[in-house]
């Protein structure tokens, strides 16, 4: 029992980070029906921004988090302006290839600037707690807490603010809504700013939890979070959160009860089964058929 409780803590930490990254994929897809494959690399950049800021200025955690989110967010918005906007009316596949290309450019740029993996400085001293045989650290609590706070904040922004309403409107119909006075480009820029900012925050938290950071760190995690977004229902914010936690739980629990060699086999087979029964994901909606 204690064993499974410990594994559940492991799963929640991993799931929170998957969910936070998955939000970025889902948000951009929801507004533009485009998959931003550079997102995993923006996540990695977030970790490096945190390393740079933290080693230059000894600021408190929250300030660093905000700076990392802003800088990564602006990078995301810049990529949209430079690379995706010119292709907005081009076929979908061109935009996807461009996104993959941007991701590779970022990754290789970082790897040429920093070919070696770097240790991430601890931003505060981590205290470990032992609750009846369960190990949990202040860092884990912080990661889970910040992730959940950001998720709730985003959900509130999308559902309760006028800007969020504009995003939902554009996601509903990106041809008619601009005619009604909604500034399309501005809304899309802000979408990328938020999406990439969340990715940056996830990168920072991930870097603190797993304090060896490298240019290639975003690739595998990025793919996994993308899968989480699809399983939850891509385009749905709550779906991305559900998908992230399910992926974390399935991965950890497979290892907990079966030989770990089967982890990816079992975890991803299970996710395929979910998609067979729910092809639009757990919380996704089938698109409106336009005649």
């Amino acid at each position: 029992m204690e064993y499974f409780a410990q594994q559940a803590i492991n799963a929640i930490q991993l799931g929170a980070i998957y969910a936070l990254i998955a939000l970025g994929y889902s948000l951009v897809y929801g507004v533009l029906t485009m998959i931003n494959f550079a997102h995993g690399d923006l996540f990695m950049v977030g970790a490096f921004f945190c390393l740079i800021i933290a080693s230059l200025f000894p600021l408190p955690f929250v300030v660093i988090l905000v700076l990392v989110m802003l800088s990564t967010g602006f990078l995301g918005a810049l990529i949209e302006r430079v690379a995706y906007r010119p292709l907005r009316s081009a076929p979908r596949v061109s935009a996807i290839i461009t996104a993959l290309g941007c991701g590779l450019v970022i990754e290789n740029l970082v790897s040429s600037l920093s070919p070696y993996a770097k240790p991430m400085p601890a931003l505060f001293s981590v205290t470990g707690y032992n609750l009846g045989g369960l190990s949990i650290s202040s860092l884990q609590i912080l990661i889970i807490g910040v992730s959940i706070l950001l998720m709730v904040g985003l959900d509130f922004f999308i559902r309760r603010t006028s800007f969020g309403m504009a995003m939902r409107a554009i996601s509903f119909d990106s041809r008619t809504v601009p005619l009604l006075g909604i500034p399309l480009n501005k809304v899309i820029s802000v979408t990328f700013l938020i999406g990439a900012g969340l990715g940056g925050a996830a990168g920072m938290l991930y870097g603190l939890a797993y304090p060896v950071i490298a240019a290639s760190m975003g690739v595998l995690v990025g793919w996994k979070a993308f899968i989480a977004a699809v399983v939850g229902g891509i385009g749905s914010i709550r779906g991305a959160v559900v998908g992230g936690f399910i992926l974390g739980l399935v991965e950890v629990m497979t290892v907990a009860v079966l030989p770990s060699t089967y982890r990816d086999l079992i975890a991803y087979s299970l996710l395929l089964v979910i998609l067979i029964f729910k092809p639009y994901g757990l919380l996704g909606k089938a698109p409106n058929q336009k005649v």
Partner: peptide
């Protein structure tokens, strides 16, 4: 205990919890 992961993994908590047991 004889546990594995795959290239690029950074979270080993599940395997390590099992090894600890």
């Amino acid at each position: 205990a004889f546990e594995t992961y795959t290239t690029g993994d950074r979270d080993f908590s599940a395997q390590l919890t099992k090894i600890k047991a």
